[in-house]
Every structure is written in structure tokens, then in C-alpha cells.
Amino acid sequence: MITATQYLETEDRLQYNFFPNRSGLCQFRVRAPNDAHIALSPSAAETTPMYEIFIGGWGNSKSVIRKNRSKPDVAEVPTPGILNEHEFRGFWVRWENGTISAGNEGEGSPFISFTDYERVPIEYVGFCTGWGARGSWVIEQREGGGPIPAAYTQGPPSHAANVCWVASSNGQVPPRPFVGGEDNGEVMYVCRSNLNGALLPGKLLQSHGNGYVAWGGKENPVYEYEVLCDFGGTWVATSGGNIPSGSLTAGQSEAGEPLYIGRVVHDGALTVGKVQPSHGCLYIPYGGKELSFKDYEILVQ
């Protein structure tokens, strides 16, 4: 993944600096005492329709989402001390299927969100400060203007470089997810989630509103998870504890053993789960249970 870092200094004048962005996600860090403003717009200008997210407004006491620069605000939450004039604070902004949300760097759940019946085509993101504040910004961007999705994290040590996991929740699917299987005609994505001290690869079905991981003999629903995105891997047939070269390390057991991503056809569904080499099998979450298989496919780069 080729990335570029944009450095931006904003004055105390509420004038947006726009960057092209059609990805649905934006990640940045900002150092400011208050009022870090982000605009989501169809063009490189303040226009109608448009959304604005004010982080640390009203003396760094609350954050809001505003549509078309009009009051009343469509969403408002108390966020005392969310910004700091002496240190950079990281955030992400996401827009997808009419939902606008913002969260803290490294956290999958937003601290503010708003769902609009009008689907506004967002193509530019703007940044500015005001109300007595100047700001320093570090904006991570993909080559071509798209940002690195919010809360991308690197997994445990892996053969695969530049593997990206995007934090999400409640059935939401980030842009450019990796498709791992299908169930009754519905696309199944590869996800992972923390459970009982382990980081477990599993499956995500958007219609269910959550992901699932296999652990403790059960199919465990997870409502906060990470989705594998921007990945060009392939599936290789294997069996037992045989781990082919280049297999993608996607998690670890509670004992620290690396876990891999596997899949198998069961009951007519091509289902994703975890490969645990010491157990010599693939485990899938299915039908409320944790099911094991000696023959399966494993994901490699």
C-alpha cells in the first residue's frame, strides 16, 4: 500500500482546506486547544448538501455533527478534554450508507454518529480550526488522494506485509473488504475479534449485524471486530496442522499461539474460521457451535 502524509497548519479563521477522498474513511491526528472542524462535501468547497463534524467545540467541551451549516445540530455528545493544544490526538471519520460517524484512533466504536435519509456523495474532506484555535494536522492518505482507513492496525507477526484490518461494529462493512465465503447466497467477509484473551479470526455476515468467532465449543457473536481489507490473497488446500508458506497470521490464542484464516464447505455454506496448528484443524463458528475439520483451505498471500 502506497501512502503519503499530508501536514497541514490551520489558522483561526474557519476556512476549510479540502482534499479529495471518495473512500468513505479518513484518518488524521490534530493538535489544537479546541474546535477541530472536518467537512464532508461533494466538492472542494462549502456547499449544500454538506456535513460538518466539530470535535472539541464550545471550549473543548462537546462534539457535534451539523448538516448544511445549519442549526439545530443533528448529533451532539459531551467530549470534555478531547483535544489538547500540546499533543496530537488521533481520530477517524467514516461515511457509509448515509451514516456519518467519528471515533478515537484505535477504537472501533464511534463517539458520535448520525444517519441521514439523504445519501450525499462525499468526494472531498476539509479541515480547519476556529473560535480562538489554530491547529497542526497530520493526515494519512493513499496515493491518489484516498485516506488510510481509520483504525487500521497491524496484526500479530505475519508473512504478509501491508495487511490491513479495519475496525468496525454492528454488521457494518468497511470499503474494499476481502470476501472469504458465502452463506445462503450472502457474501461472507473475514473478520477477527478479541475474546477471552485471544484474538480470533472469524466470519462476518452483514445481515446478522455482527461477526462470529469459534471458541470454547461455541459460535460466539461479536459486535466489535476488525475486517480484512485491501488484501489480494488466495486460498490453498491443506490439512491437519500443515501451514503453507505465506499463510496469513491473523490472530493468536489465549496462550499466544499464532492463528490463521481457513475455510471449508459445511451444510452448503462456505464458512470462514480459525486454523490452530497445534490442534491440527480448522475451527468454524456455525449453527451455534464450534466445529472442527481436518481438511480445509487456508488463506495465503
Rank of each mutant, 00 (worst) to 15 (best):
D230H: 12
T129W: 00
E87A: 15
P221W: 02
G90R: 03
H266N: 12
K218C: 10
Y51I: 08
T99F: 05
E219T: 07
R192D: 02
Q141M: 15
P78A: 14
R142G: 09
I261Q: 01
I298V: 12
P201R: 02
D116T: 09
R89Q: 13
E96W: 08
Q206V: 11
G90C: 06
S23D: 09
N210V: 10
E140T: 14
V30K: 00
P221I: 06
P258V: 05
A150Y: 03
G185R: 08
D183E: 15
L205N: 04
G288K: 06
V300T: 13
Q172F: 11
V138D: 05
P110R: 02
H159A: 15
K294P: 09
V236T: 12
H208R: 15
C128K: 02
T238C: 05
V125P: 00
Y286F: 14
Q154L: 13
G232E: 12
G57Y: 01
R31T: 08
L199C: 12
L282R: 00
A167H: 04
E105F: 09
P72N: 08
H86Y: 14
N210T: 10
S113N: 11
F293W: 06
I148Q: 03
E11C: 09
A44F: 04
W137V: 04
Y117N: 11
E52N: 11
E226N: 07
G280H: 04
A133N: 02
Q27H: 12
G59Q: 11
P149R: 03
G126E: 00
I298R: 00
A160T: 15
P174D: 05
R263F: 04
Y286H: 14
G180F: 02
L195Q: 09
T153L: 14
E87Q: 14
G130K: 00
I55S: 03
K218Y: 09
N162D: 15
S41V: 05
E257Q: 12
G288Q: 07
L195I: 12
R142S: 10
S169I: 10
T10C: 06
L282Q: 01
H208A: 15
G81S: 09
G145Q: 03
S63I: 05
A161F: 15
Q154T: 14
V213W: 00
Y223R: 13
S193Y: 01
A102G: 06
E105I: 11
P258T: 07
G56E: 02
C26T: 11
V222T: 05
P258A: 08
A39D: 03
N17Q: 12
S61E: 14
G130F: 00
S278R: 08
P78Q: 14
G209V: 07
A36K: 01
T271P: 01
R176D: 14
N210W: 06
N60E: 08
I82K: 00
L40S: 04
G232P: 04
L204I: 08
P147V: 08
Q141Y: 06
H86G: 10
